Simulated assay, not measured.
Amino acid sequence: MHLEVVMAAYNDPEVLTLTLEGYRRQTERNFSLCIADDGSGPEVAEVIERFRGLGLDIRHVWHEDRGFRKAQIVNRAIEGSRADYIVLTDSDCVPMRHFIADHRDWARPGHMVAGRRVDTAEGLTARIKSGELSLAGLEHPLRLLFQSLRGGLSRAEFGLHLPRWAAQLWSRKQLALLGANMGVWREDLMAVNGFDSDFEGYGAEEVDLEWRLIGWGVKQRAMRGRGGLIHIHHHQRQADAYVFHLLQHKQQAGEVVARNGIR
């Protein structure tokens, strides 16, 4: 199974560097990356070129910056992929070292996988960026717990790498898809025509994709205790109000296949 990580990115070469270092640490090396770039400047392209030189198999798909158009650029990345299975994530989410291996293990025909992430606080993020704190070291369960108790991060439990039987037991209850950590078969994404590119404001494009995949017959599969990410803190932008009205309108219309998608 050819697995490709499609990573949405925009104008943060410093954090992208941390994330790509995470992919260099993977225990499973059989994967490719695609940076779906929503209009970044040349600094991001320079980071990508440097990591290509370090051995990562990376495609870079870019379009002009004309506002938040994540759905459109990720669709271009999906369309150009030759992978069987696609893991969707963001460039500010650093994978723990078993991330690829866990997604490969969790993939099942007819299913999409919903993973989760640990969220770092502003203070801890500053220490990570300065090099004072190692992201690789932060994966240790005791360090996760320690930083959680100190308020340095939240959702530490999603950074644990449990024995497979324990992770499967914990994953029995469903999770909603999180755009930063989800696995979907490419043929299922193509069947529903990918993301709906009508969603140009921030928010709702992932919720829309999830309900259309369910409408197509794809089942949900949670992944807890495996496949963790460390989300690097940034100031959250507010979702654009109109996109949720658009989502409601589209759900009422019941169109599972996006009219304005990949094709």
Rank of each mutant, 00 (worst) to 15 (best):
S81I: 11
R82M: 14
D84E: 12
Y85P: 11
Y85Q: 15
D90F: 07
D92E: 04
D92Q: 12
D92K: 08
C93H: 14
P95R: 14
H98S: 13
H98Y: 15
F99H: 09
I100L: 08
A101E: 12
H103C: 06
R104V: 04
R104F: 10
D105H: 13
W106K: 05
M112Y: 03
M112L: 11
V113D: 03
G115Y: 02
R116T: 08
R117T: 09
T120D: 06
A121H: 11
A121I: 09
E122N: 10
G123C: 06
A126L: 14
K129S: 15
K129L: 09
S130H: 10
G131S: 13
G131C: 04
L133R: 03
L133M: 13
L135Q: 04
L135P: 01
E139C: 07
R143L: 09
L144A: 05
L144C: 01
L144Y: 00
L145T: 04
F146G: 09
Q147N: 15
L149W: 11
R150G: 11
G151A: 14
R155S: 14
E157C: 08
E157D: 15
G159S: 09
G159L: 01
L162A: 01
A167M: 00
A167S: 01
A167Y: 00
Q168V: 08
L169Q: 01
L169D: 00
R172V: 10
R172W: 09
K173Y: 15
Q174S: 15
L177A: 07
L178M: 12
L178R: 12
G179D: 02
N181V: 02
